[in-house]
Nucleic acid binder design. Structure first.
Lengths: 187, 187
DNA sequence: GTCTATATCTTGATAGAC
DNA sequence: GTCTATCAAGATATAGAC
């Protein structure tokens, strides 16, 4: 293993540890020391690789909205597409889940996380679907769609409300999709 | 003004300042010093009255769910009742709004706030309406109803998504109520 | 009773030894 | 290049003067 490989491996270990702690305990309660401890490296190394706690958080907390999938969905497909996007983001890939959780966990208390959540996640997703919803209320309906999805996501993965955590994907589809259809298509 | 009155007034001023800062900046970013400064008192006085920052937070962050109103609503009335509860809690009374915001702002990052939010708000509200929803999915439907309401509340009052903050009460009723009716009554 | 002063702790960040 | 040792800042909480 070359030195460059070792360096990349160490950096990846630090990043994963940081994502887990930011996702679980939030920004303020995770310390450089605790991240270094979990990653098995020296705290000074974390600073050397990432510069500051803020930059480490920026590299850790990410949310990827699938614009292509959302943008190409028809109005009838929108609810199912939005729900599928949630499942893909939070249950399929570990890396993506931890990064998204790290952002969502801190979006109410960390200034930059709040900005990313509002501008790069919510408003972007809203813009991607408002056109296919159409009508006078398009923006509002797109916003409500996103708000409901965020609420379900928070209740299920962060607050861990038993009724939500205990629901299967089919349960959620059965209960949620008809409601979301009413949001995107009042007719 | 008697000494007891003065004491109560001072305590109320401290509590209001604490609620505003907990609601706006979150638990970690508000300090005893800043609360005392805004209230115009000495930091030591805050400690003397409330014991600790944790207890001050406990007294500041409160959420009152109107069980009576929710519990006595028919299934048809449930969506409108839930929405009315949100507006009453967040737009009518200043004290109640700041207390609720203080809890909501911190419910993802502060352990005790998370517990109160899950157990005393979400699960309580869920239990209050599950009976009137009925059917096999009653608990899940009640949970989804609460999750959507929380999502809209967060998007509107905390994340301040333009499409949500710009909506009037009538806008939200028009867009949201038909969807919530689908949640509580799939028939 | 109120507040000044401070103890004690923890944090992010840095400098220099090896 | 990695880590030991430490700095400087800021927090809660307390003890004692007035």
């Amino acid at each position: 293993m070359t030195r460059e490989e070792r360096r990349r491996r160490t950096e990846a270990a630090i990043l994963l540890a940081a994502q887990e702690q930011f996702a679980e305990q939030g920004f303020e309660r995770t310390t450089i020391r605790s991240v270094a401890g979990q990653a098995g490296v020296d705290p000074a190394l974390v600073m050397q690789y990432f510069g500051s706690k803020e930059q480490l958080f920026g590299a850790s907390a990410r949310w990827t909205v699938d614009h292509k999938m959302l943008g190409s969905a028809t109005r009838e497909e929108l609810p199912a597409t939005a729900l599928a996007d949630m499942f893909e983001g939070f249950e399929d890939d570990v890396q993506r889940r931890e990064a998204a959780l790290a952002l969502l966990r801190n979006c109410l208390t960390h200034p930059s996380a709040a900005g990313v959540m509002r501008d790069d996640v919510m408003c972007e997703a809203q813009a991607a679907v408002a056109g296919t919803i159409g009508g006078d209320d398009a923006e509002l309906r797109a916003g409500v769609l996103g708000a409901c999805m965020i609420g379900v996501t928070i209740a299920r993965y962060l607050l861990e409300i038993p009724a939500l955590t205990g629901a299967t994907r089919e349960d959620l589809e059965r209960v949620l999709l008809p409601a979301l259809r009413q949001v995107v298509d009042p007719g």
